[in-house]
Amino acid sequence: MGAYFSGIFSGLWSLFVGMGITFREFFSPTVTVQYPYETLKMTARYRGHIELIADEEGKPNCVVCGMCEKACPSSCITLAGEKPEGAKKKVLTGYHLDFTKCSLCGSCVESCNFNAIEFSREYNLASTRKEDFHFDLLQRLKDRNS
């Protein structure tokens, strides 16, 4: 009989303790970020999709060695390059990223020994069309330069 009553009282007490906690939380400041109105800055190491790095003249650093293409586990990267007459290095003519398959693993950036690609900080990527995620990075680089 005693256990019956003490059970009821301790149970009731635990409920009031819980309500005390939510009461305190009620008067604490909010902690959320109002997303479309406020945005957070992505950290320096944030892994977005990849982007080409340009040298001073605005030309891509890439020498079309193909390491990134080979390293990519999801085969998202398609390269095209040609060696112009008389030039020492190959010149990049097409860098195609299929972002629909990319898993943002970073293998491509790590495998590149020429400092030619980096992660972008872009995360507001949404579309209803698949084609929007086939990026022509060379074109994007040109757009950035202009």
Binding site: T43, A44, R45, Y46, R47, S103, L104, C105, G106, E110, F119
Partner: peptide, 21 residues
């Protein structure tokens, strides 16, 4: 973890022999 690894859930932070960062 995001500040270190660059990702919030799918980290892929470890490398054979060490770390990515």
């Amino acid at each position: 973890l995001e500040a270190v690894t660059g990702s919030r859930l799918t980290y892929s932070y470890y490398r054979f022999g060490g770390l990515y960062n």
